[in-house]
Simulated scan of single mutants.
Amino acid sequence: MNVLVWLAAILFILMILIGGKKGARSFISLFLNFGVIFLTIFFMMDPNVNPIILTLIACTVISCINLFYINGVNSKTKTAFLSSMITIVILILFITIVTDKAMIQGFGEEEIDELSIFSLYVGMDFVKISASMIIMSTIGAITDVAISITSPMREIFNHNPLISRKDLFASGLNIGKDILGSNTNTLFFAFIGGYLALLLWFKDLSYTVGEIVNSKVFSAEVVIILCAGVGIAIVIPIASWINAYFLVRED
């Protein structure tokens, strides 16, 4: 416990020194987001609650925290929020279909021992639960990309107020191209790094490549990575177009 406190203190000090007040708000937002996720899981235990609707509400709150609380309420955060919400709605429809077709809902055979002492009749729709899990895994990346596009586009417009909507939209896309590759790789290494122990376990169990690829646990992680990449790719043109539309008033 002391190690966790020291790590949190070091992170807080560094964020204050580097980010100032915004760094302090960013640190506080970590705990606020954790609280939102905890409440989402708590309410999701109720079989009468639709996990997709609950996830959409949670993503809205998390987006407000990440955008408005940290960066303030202004034109760039408003357009980033709107872009994120549109992307999340599209992604929810897409992920629900993918989760059902890929059959990654529920638990894999690697988890049988842990589940043997629990009742499997939990009364939950695991297709929606899996979709909710993927959405919650991608919301941070989506809001990050959205504000990373709308903020420099705002600076471009401030330095060149006579820029056309088409040129500003093209500038947003060019910014997004640089963000797309780096963020996709960041998500890939974040998820694979978190499941490195699982891959080592597969090796110790003498799993073949085919067994690893067809494992439900492994497939679920790959689906999360790919869906997160899809979300990042979708939010780039949406954020660029919405920001260009609201910034440039053409008659």
Score class of each variant (00 low, 15 high):
F81K: 03
I70G: 05
P47L: 01
I92C: 15
Y69A: 09
L17E: 03
I212Q: 05
I134T: 13
L93V: 11
I234T: 12
L30M: 15
L120Q: 14
T40I: 02
G194D: 08
L187Y: 05
I97L: 13
G106T: 04
W241E: 04
N48Y: 06
L205H: 10
S219C: 12
V248R: 02
D167R: 06
L226F: 09
D178Q: 09
V5A: 15
D113G: 00
P51V: 00
I10H: 04
V222T: 11
G229V: 03
A80G: 02
I179Q: 09
S215L: 01
A24I: 14
M85C: 06
I192L: 10
P51T: 01
F202E: 03
T184P: 00
A146G: 06
N33W: 01
F202M: 08
T60Y: 13
L4I: 09
T184L: 12
K177T: 12
K128Q: 14
F68H: 07
A239M: 04
E114D: 13
N2L: 13
N74F: 03
G72V: 03
I163A: 00
D178W: 04
I117M: 13
V89A: 15
N243Y: 14
I225Q: 05
T208P: 01
T208Q: 03
Y245C: 00
V49K: 06
N174P: 00
I104N: 08
I62W: 04
T60I: 06
G140Y: 01
T60N: 13
G193L: 04
N71K: 13
I236Y: 09
T87S: 10
S182L: 05
P161W: 00
T79Q: 12
V222A: 11
I86T: 09
T96Y: 15
L91T: 09
I192T: 14
V61L: 11
V127F: 14
V213Q: 05
I18G: 01
G172E: 01
T143L: 03
C64T: 10
F38M: 09
T99M: 10
F34N: 07
L247I: 04
V248P: 06
I156L: 11
L91D: 05
F191W: 08
G20N: 07
A233N: 09
N48W: 00
S171Q: 07
I212T: 15
I142A: 03
V145F: 01
G176F: 03
A80K: 00
V217K: 05
